[in-house]
Simulated scan of single mutants.
Amino acid sequence: MDIRTLDADDLDLICQHREAMFRDAGQRDDVLTLMTGNFREWVKPRLLDGSYFGYVIQDAAVPVAGIGLMLIDWPPHPAHPMQDKRGYVLNVFVEPDYRNRGLARELMHLAEAELVRRGVTFAILHATEKGKPLYRGLGWHGTTEMAKTLDVPPCREVGEDAMECAAQSVSSGACGGEPS
């Protein structure tokens, strides 16, 4: 097995791994198709400028596992009171035939070392149920983060300013709120 850093030629691989990761987590194909197209456009410039980086593990030059990393802008926080950034780990994926061999653990060790090398003192990730035991075993723990998908109509179709569109959606009850 060989380990190498991601490069711009890995765009398709990164997209394939991300889609397979979410498919393994139970996401629907129609959602994944939409996500992958948009993710491709989002990650391409970041891969080119180095703001999305990471590692690939290969077996005889065939990629079998990968991990993505980013530094994200974040205000100083009790977990990192002197720093305005966090490390972000994403797209951890190991091909099914290569699972349970320690490859994800190796990728996580590489990720942590790279983030430390870049001066990051705090990192986050979002774990699938399958991934949680691995991350817990490496010392990662849950946080107080909560999430909600907001039901706002696409403003591009409405032809309005995004703030006006969101405000009208909330006041009309389109987001599940009471009309004003």
Rank of each mutant, 00 (worst) to 15 (best):
I3A: 08
I3E: 11
I3D: 02
T5S: 08
A8F: 15
D9V: 11
D12F: 01
L13N: 00
I14S: 01
R18C: 02
R18A: 11
E19N: 02
M21W: 09
Q27S: 14
R28L: 15
D29P: 11
V31T: 14
L32P: 00
L32I: 11
E41A: 15
W42C: 00
V43C: 02
K44V: 03
K44H: 09
P45A: 07
P45D: 02
L48I: 10
L48F: 06
D49H: 03
G50L: 13
G50E: 12
G50S: 07
S51E: 05
Y52K: 00
G54S: 03
V56Q: 04
V56S: 04
Q58F: 03
A61V: 07
A61S: 03
V64Y: 03
G66R: 00
G68Y: 02
L69Q: 06
M70R: 09
I72Y: 03
D73M: 10
W74T: 00
W74V: 06
W74A: 10
P76K: 09
P78Q: 07
A79M: 15
A79E: 08
H80R: 13
H80G: 14
R86W: 06
G87R: 03
G87F: 14
N91W: 01
N91P: 05
V94Q: 00
V94L: 03
P96N: 02
D97G: 09
Y98W: 07
Y98T: 04
N100A: 11
N100E: 10
R101V: 14
R101W: 05
E106L: 05
E106G: 10
E106W: 11
E106A: 11
E106C: 07
L107H: 04
L107K: 02
L110Q: 01
E112T: 01
L115N: 04
L115C: 11
R118F: 12
G119Q: 13
F122Q: 12
A123T: 12
I124H: 07
L125I: 07
H126F: 08
H126D: 12
K132C: 13
P133M: 11
R136Y: 15
R136M: 12
G137H: 15
L138E: 10
W140D: 02
E145D: 10
E145V: 06
E145W: 09
A147L: 03
T149H: 09
L150S: 07
V152Y: 05
G159W: 04
E160S: 07
E160P: 01
E160Y: 12
A162I: 15
E164I: 13
Q168T: 13
S169A: 15
V170L: 09
C175S: 05
E178S: 14
P179E: 13
P179H: 08
P179W: 02
